[in-house]
Design a protein around this nucleic acid. Structure first.
Length: 269
DNA sequence: AGCCAGGAAGTCC
DNA sequence: GGACTTCATGGC
């Protein structure tokens, strides 16, 4: 058990922010978070958080996962005070952060996300975990959870299997992705991505079947923490048209574009 | 019935 | 290189 004070973090906002699809609401304000093969439950009262893990696990996994070493107050302070829309969006989503999620989980989740809605993405990801993930018993010894399935765990399934979980026409993309990255495919891709700059990383991702510009940007932002990527989806396109007809000031916000994008996305949800 | 959802591939020219 | 169409599927 750990108690912490964390500024600029709100569990309900993170759970609803559409960047992770493996959070689940438990009883009375408690959230369950599965990541990196672990399962954490936590609660929040204001800026005080209670996590059911020890300090070693917190330092090994969760400090990084919740991006606690990034100063979100400083980023919000950079917002142009004349920009009423962006100030309002950042205020509304004050507890949204860019989580440092597992690369493969992000690849699969956002491959599924295209032309889809968040509730069905969540259901599809849950189906993948229960059907192909590893079942483990939680810290309380009673409740169990499923890890996110590896490429190898998915590679023998077919598009028809994935379609049965509600992936629709995206099922063939996941079939190809899992087979492409099975064995040493994923670590090899990760090495190439880690050695690449932002543009090159996005280009590498776009070389995979089913991954286009928007999904590649989401993978770079959420799976590689390339904080300057600015994914433009249907919501952001709408926001840009409504509030930035002359174009969004990308250069002004170089260095934190992805975080501002999350404020804008969450405000539009 | 048609439109929308964290879009991308295929198919024209 | 663009512009247009197709792709599953459920909710509104």
């Amino acid at each position: 058990m750990m108690e912490l004070q964390i500024a600029n973090m709100d569990l309900a906002q993170l759970a609803g922010s559409g960047q992770s699809f493996t959070w689940n609401a438990l009883e009375k304000g408690r959230w369950g978070v599965a990541a990196f093969g672990r399962y954490l439950t936590l609660t929040q009262q204001g800026d005080r958080f209670t996590l059911d893990c020890d300090e070693a696990e917190f330092e090994a996994i969760w400090r990084t996962y919740f991006d606690l070493d990034t100063d979100y107050a400083a980023i919000r302070a950079c917002i142009d005070p004349e920009d009423a829309y962006l100030c309002g969006a950042a205020d509304f989503g004050h507890g949204v952060r860019v989580l440092r999620q597992d690369l493969w989980e992000v690849m699969v989740s956002f491959l599924i996300s295209q032309n889809n809605n968040i509730s069905r993405i969540r259901a599809s990801v849950a189906g993948l975990c229960t059907h192909y993930g590893e079942q483990r018993v939680g810290r309380d010894g009673v409740h169990s959870y499923h890890t996110f399935p590896t490429p190898d765990a998915l590679a023998d399934a077919t598009a028809a299997d994935f379609a049965a979980l509600g992936l629709g026409y995206r099922a063939k993309y996941l079939e190809a992705l899992a087979r492409e990255l099975r064995g040493q495919g994923l670590p090899a891709l990760r090495r190439a991505l880690d050695a690449a700059g932002d543009e090159e990383a996005v280009a590498l991702l776009r070389g995979l079947y089913g991954i286009g510009p928007k999904v590649a940007d989401c993978i770079a932002l959420f799976g590689l923490h390339r904080i300057d990527r600015f994914p433009v989806d249907t919501h952001i396109r709408k926001v840009l048209a409504a509030h930035y007809p002359q174009g969004f000031p990308l250069e002004r916000y170089r260095g934190c574009l992805g975080i501002l994008q999350q404020y804008m996305f969450y405000a539009d949800l």
